[in-house]
């Protein structure tokens, strides 16, 4: 039974991990469960490291930051190097295939072509964050948040002209996990 899940999304500034976290938290609230989203980022508009966090929970969420990371997303080597130590030993790592990863670990590892899917299948690196949302959603599960709610949350939070492309990206992200 789902009680609480703590997710950390990391990448390079400009990759949209904060928006990805907002979409997940937004969907959780729409679903009627509690969620908190926070972020940390440098003063730069692009580049630098960017980290966003989401906690979803059946109960009231007191401390707003992730202390027990269940799922960690890393889109870059830097973010992997910086945050991998924070992942639960029974947690799940979702990492772009371009990142060198120590595979010999107790947590579950999904090494996936997230950036490549965005760039070459959907046609723009800008949707890498929504491909990521798809992968994370597939791990969170439809029993926690319904797919309709997720799609509505994406639709509401991305620029209107990019909705179709982003929903395509979301579906492709789900496929990366489910095959």
């Amino acid at each position: 039974m789902f009680q609480k899940m703590e997710l950390r999304l990391s990448g390079s500034g400009g990759q949209g991990v904060i928006l990805a976290a907002i979409i997940l938290a937004d969907a959780a609230i729409e679903q009627g469960i509690n969620a908190i989203q926070t972020q940390s980022y440098g003063p730069e508009a692009r580049g630098g490291s960017s980290k966003a966090e989401v906690i979803i929970s059946k109960d009231e969420i007191k401390f707003p930051k992730v202390t027990n990371c269940d799922i960690l997303l890393c889109l870059t080597q830097n973010s992997y190097d910086k945050y991998i130590a924070s992942l639960n030993k029974n947690g799940i790592l979702v990492v772009d295939e371009s990142v060198n990863v120590n595979m010999n670990e107790s947590y579950k590892i999904y090494k996936l072509p997230i950036l490549d899917t965005a760039q070459n299948k959907i046609g723009t690196h800008m949707v890498a964050n929504i491909v990521s949302v798809g992968t994370l959603y597939a791990l969170i599960g439809e029993d926690v948040i319904s797919k309709d709610v997720m799609i509505r949350s994406i639709t509401n939070r991305v620029p209107p002209v990019t909705v179709d492309k982003n929903i395509y990206a979301f579906e492709e992200g789900i496929k990366l996990i489910r095959g």
């Binding site: 938290a25 937004d26 908190i36 707003p64």
Partner: peptide, 9 residues
């Protein structure tokens, strides 16, 4: 900053 930038319900 914690309260200003966090999102919740």
């Amino acid at each position: 900053e914690t309260v200003g930038h966090m999102r919740e319900k």
